[in-house]
């Protein structure tokens, strides 16, 4: 049996991989902000005050003390909206990435283990899927499903399961040939038991790496779709809506665009770094 449990030095190795540490830090910050949004946000994100519209950040002469980074066109507090936007970003990241992982893993396991026609069909679909630009595909899908957060999540799952499927398939084909699977067959394990109890646990480290990268992708896709007006309603505080407003009023309130763009870059770079770092820690080849 291949030892699937992380060995005792696992935590130690993560702590000594700067990218993983940075990525975990970003993930923690996002989670804390999302969970404590009601206490963290200085204002109600939906509260409008037209007397205070287009306020600049507080250090400008016209700035107002309680609106640290100013207000948008309807006098809503930019910081509060960004803070609440973190919730949507994180929900999409976790839910969409997990579901895509689930779908991709199941199909990847089937294709990799059974081979033959099953593999042929699944691999062909993956190939066709991956040759389409994701942005275009997601916009078309949302056009079909209808705008909304659920549609965005479904679209991400439908598009990005292939990322998991491809890798899981390849890895299953490798694992299938190893001795422990042969001994599993000898002691009479069923195929399902072999797949779920023996092969799947060995894929978990790989899945974690893919999952953390997928979370970054999901956040970007949600932002893109709310930017073009196909995700949550336009007054809901999401990063994409903020960016859309910021783009529209770029010459009046440039700071409206700055904060959500910064948050987005911060999360995407962080989650990418987490994936890269974990890969380094987990993968014995790149660990040298």
């Amino acid at each position: 049996m291949v030892n699937v449990r992380p060995d005792p030095s696992f935590v130690y190795r993560i702590c000594h991989e700067p990218r993983a540490v940075f990525g975990l830090f970003v993930l923690c910050v996002l989670t804390v902000i999302a969970l404590t949004a009601p206490w963290l946000a200085p204002h109600d994100p939906l509260e409008q005050d037209l007397l205070y519209s287009f306020l600049p950040p507080t250090w400008y002469p016209q700035g107002e003390g309680s609106y640290l980074l100013g207000t948008d066109n309807l006098g809503r507090d930019i910081i509060s909206r960004t803070v609440y936007g973190t919730r949507i970003a994180l929900v999409v990241a976790v839910v969409a990435a997990s579901l895509a992982c689930l779908l991709g893993t199941v199909l990847g396991l089937l294709a990799g283990y059974f081979g033959g026609k099953v593999d042929l069909v699944i691999s062909r679909v993956v190939d066709i899927w991956m040759s389409f630009p994701a942005v275009l595909l997601s916009i078309v899908l949302v056009a079909v499903i209808g705008a909304g957060l659920h549609a965005v999540i479904i679209a991400i799952v439908i598009i990005d399961w292939t990322r998991f499927c491809r890798v899981v398939r390849a890895e299953t084909m490798v694992q299938k040939e190893l001795d422990y699977v042969a001994s599993g067959v000898t002691i009479g394990l069923s195929r399902i038991q072999l797949l779920l109890n023996e092969i799947l646990p060995n894929l978990v480290p790989l899945l974690i790496v893919l999952l953390s990268m997928e979370m970054g992708i999901a956040i970007v896709v949600e932002t893109i779709l709310s930017f073009v007006g196909l995700s949550v309603a336009s007054d809901t505080p999401s990063w994409g809506n903020l960016i859309q407003e910021g783009r529209q009023y770029i010459h009046q309130v440039p700071w409206l665009l700055g904060l959500p763009v910064f948050c987005l870059i911060f999360s995407v770079v962080g989650l990418n770094a987490l994936g890269d770092g974990l890969k380094q820690v987990i993968d014995p080849v790149s660990r040298r």
């Binding site: 942005v135 970007v220 932002t223 893109i224 930017f227 960016i243 783009r247 770029i250 010459h251 440039p254 665009l257 700055g258 763009v261 987005l264 870059i265 995407v268 770079v269 990418n272 770094a273």
Partner: peptide
């Protein structure tokens, strides 16, 4: 590679269009 083109575009707008 780590930052998608969408974000580069926004960053360019902020830096070279506004700042």
């Amino acid at each position: 590679v780590a930052i998608p083109d969408f974000l580069w575009a926004l960053a360019f707008i902020l830096i070279l269009g506004v700042v």
